[in-house]
Design a protein around this nucleic acid. Structure first.
Lengths: 240, 240
DNA sequence: TGAAGACTTGACCAAACGGTCAAGATGATA
DNA sequence: TATCATCTTGACCGTTTGGTCAAGTCTTCA
């Protein structure tokens, strides 16, 4: 019992804000900032609209809070990039983390995508400061890996964009993915396949893993060595 | 002079519809369906709002026309996939085409992205028919290439999603990319680097090209052999 | 118990928006 | 010139929506 009063005071407040933010994330994701109405959000949160405006004075303030929450989650995932100096380990974990967020938290990604699509009217400052710094430091890390001969000399910035776009696609475009999957969401197995394929193509693409081309006929024997130790397979002649 | 009257009749009409559609594409891309107003579109087209409604009775009808135009452009690009049976050639051309569209026609991609993000309220039928068929036939092609040992046994669907997301990222997220590029659009050189990097990572990633890891120190010597003939470089030891 | 603050809510308002309309302008045809 | 169809446009309307407000209810604490 460290904080008796000043925290009890906002017991109802905390719960209501949580409800509203959860509802807002879904509604903003599905309808965009303009398309979402405070009435819809209030309905989804199970409270009257006037009550929503008691906790969040304007629609914009609520939206901004939603976006900030998402950004925090992404920054946390980004740490995986820093905690390992081995490019295979770092990239594998980073890609996996971003894929997992796209599956567990798709609404957040959609809100972000919507915001960027419309020229970031409310989060431009994030882009210019936090995201810019984060990007530059990671580019430096990748450049070092390249200089050390630990991966192919690709353009680091393009690689980062590739990782972002590919992983977030599974959140932002999940409606399209579902539709192309007979209207059903991806099963856990399908999603795992997708994750492993993305990791495999990128790691192989930047020269960290080696390609596994079977000149014979076989179907797939999917790659699942995406963790600590990579078992390099022999690769057969391919050159012209 | 094959068609004298029945076409002259709509001379003004054709011109006005063109103006309106061009304005609508930009405004819908920047603000989404809900965020865009017919007044904004009319202003950008340089005509009164009532006149816009003379040519397009409802906002929805105008929007649908814009989306259909975009879809046609994409389908044309998709043909590049069919015209070559060599996976390197086909994938390189397809990726390049999609990258070029993202640069030359970013608004269209944004409108599409916005539509999918909001669960495709007006183009669901396209997803279920045309896009679904297109996807399945290309998956079959990729599976054949894999079976013939011409590329690594990756999941074809995940590969397609990867190509779509990566290439369209340069349109849908161009605001973010600009911001991370000191507020400037990518130069032609930067865009070319991006395109070559994407092609390189994906082709290497699926085992069509071989990685070029320089164990020494050098900076980059960027890959630019993205056309007909690939010059495979030696790749040095990497295994654990 | 009662006063003070925190929370709840139905009713309301002004602004913005999609769409209509009627009155006209323009242009082709005879 | 007269007629008719196409096109143009300012004014207008009903609806939706973000946000307000005043009249409550509930909780806490002396």
């Amino acid at each position: 019992m460290p904080v008796p009063k000043p925290m009890i005071k906002s017991a109802a407040r905390a719960e209501n804000e949580r409800l509203i933010l959860a509802a807002a994330e879904i509604v903003f994701a599905d309808y965009g900032f303009k398309g979402a109405t405070t009435g819809m959000i209030a309905d989804k949160a199970g409270i009257p609209k006037a009550n929503l405006h008691y906790y969040f004075p304007t629609k914009l303030a609520l939206y901004r809070q939603v976006v900030e929450n998402i950004f925090q989650i992404w920054l946390a995932a980004a740490d995986t990039f820093d905690n390992y100096d081995d490019p295979e380990e770092a990239l594998t974990r980073y890609i996996s983390a971003k894929m997992d967020i796209s599956r567990s938290h798709p609404m957040g990604s959609k809100v972000w995508a919507n915001e960027i699509l419309h020229k970031a009217p409310v989060i431009q400052d994030y882009l210019e400061t936090t995201l810019c710094e984060w990007t530059n430091t990671r580019i430096a890390v990748i450049e070092r890996w390249i200089a050390e001969g630990r991966m192919a000399p690709i353009d680091p910035r393009s690689l980062l964009y590739m990782i972002w776009s590919t992983t977030q696609h599974y959140a932002d475009f999940n409606h399209q993915i579902h539709t192309l999957n007979h209207g059903e969401p991806l099963t856990d197995a399908q999603f795992t396949t997708a994750k492993e394929t993305v990791v495999s193509i990128i790691l192989t693409g930047v020269g960290i893993r080696k390609a596994d081309v079977q000149s014979g006929g076989g179907q797939s024997a999917n790659i699942d060595n995406m963790s600590q130790q990579t078992q390099f397979k022999k690769l057969n002649g391919e050159g012209a």
